[in-house]
């Protein structure tokens, strides 16, 4: 739980419902206490020992935080994190939750951050992306057709994807449209932990999408199985079924994060 700053009154008179100008910029449309990205506080110095590691590891319901005592490192897998804030409750001095949304990554491994003793993690954007950028820009031009596929999500991600179409986020102004068939699509936006019952349908949809195609895994479930993990009815992530180009973590990722991921996929960022 966060304490609100007393100086700033909670009553926000600037609450408007205009189309936001640039969804990729941090502005007041994102609340300060929005849980968007969990990290170990880079400003805090701490000595990593077994006790801290174990507490952090235990506090996570989806095992996104893992601790290995042989190399004294904490691994934080954003692809598994469901942004519940449980770790913050357990060890408020170590965990920092920010309202950042630009966490989509091109490789699954990039979602895993490693923290060693008191050293903040430095993140760099994928260098491979630069190479791809020119290629895909040429192919797709400024218009991108997206087909959304629900592979067993809880419908939280669908709410946010639907929000992209509302007048506030209005994704169509970027030349991005949602189409009714995978045959018309350039991008497959896949949510859910890939339930076994949807596996075949997802494969067929992937095969019917014309080349070149991009697959984006949306949400913690699609990245890693999320809270459902890998059980008898799920496959534990979309990338066990079809190749994935971009991973968007979050539970659910907010519309800005989705837009960031989509734009990362076509390398406009």
């Amino acid at each position: 739980m966060k304490k609100r700053d007393k100086k700033e009154p909670f009553i926000d008179t600037s609450f408007k419902s205009k189309t936001i100008k640039n969804p990729l910029k941090m502005d007041d449309s994102i609340a300060d206490n929005y849980r968007g990205y969990v990290t170990l506080d880079p400003d805090k110095e701490f000595i990593l020992n077994d006790k801290i590691g174990k507490i952090l590891e235990k506090s996570c319901p989806t095992h996104a935080i893992t601790y290995q005592n042989n190399d004294l490192k904490i691994h934080l897998d954003n692809g598994k994190c469901i942004l519940c804030g449980n770790c913050k409750v357990e060890s408020p001095e170590l965990i920092k939750i920010t309202n950042k949304f630009d966490q989509a990554k091109k490789r699954r491994d990039d979602l895993i951050e490693t923290f060693s003793m008191s050293a903040p993690f430095e993140k760099t954007y994928d260098e491979l992306g630069q190479e791809l950028k020119n290629k895909i820009d040429k192919i797709f031009g400024r218009s991108l057709a997206i087909r959304e596929i629900d592979a067993g999500s809880c419908n939280g991600c669908e709410i946010e994807i639907n929000a992209l179409n509302n007048p506030i986020y209005d994704i169509e102004r970027y030349g991005i449209t949602f189409v009714a068939s995978p045959r018309h699509a350039d991008v497959l936006l896949v949510t859910g932990p890939a339930s076994k019952n949807m596996e075949q349908a997802l494969k067929i949809a992937y095969d019917s999408t014309p080349n070149p195609k991009i697959v984006i895994a949306v949400g913690a479930c699609a990245c890693s199985g999320g809270i459902f993990g890998n059980n008898y009815a799920t496959t534990g992530g979309i990338d066990n079924i079809v190749p994935v180009n971009v991973y968007i973590p979050g539970c659910p990722p907010r519309p800005q994060a989705l837009l960031y991921g989509i734009l990362l996929a076509i390398n406009k960022i």
Partner: peptide, 11 residues
Amino acid sequence: LGYTHKGIEKI
């Protein structure tokens, strides 16, 4: 239906 079965009751 049943396509989104994730085994919630079991896990």
